[in-house]
Amino acid sequence: MVIVFLVLLIILSAYTLVTRDLLYGVIALSAISLLSALLFYLLHAPDVAITEAAVGAGVSTVIFVWAIRATERFSPQDRPEKRNGSKGGKQ
């Protein structure tokens, strides 16, 4: 049971880091927090579950959405050829 949750968490966190739309990443991050809260409830830790659900899915989502709204939403980089080019330019 715990292993299923952990695999789901790993898939969601990898998706958070590779997606180009930062807003999708924020939503996946709050899904990670909700899954963690369920996992804490299954592991007999209801206090930590309440905290994680309120903080992770509520407050930190608000802060991230504010930051993305105030700046820019898409991250157009993370392409390996551009990184190689910049490295070659430095030498």
Binding site: P46, D47, A49, I50, T51, A54, V55, G58, V59
Partner: peptide, 11 residues
């Protein structure tokens, strides 16, 4: 019951 100052404060 489960809860406390910080959790209630966030709610």
């Amino acid at each position: 019951s489960p809860g406390g100052g910080f959790q209630g404060g966030v709610v």
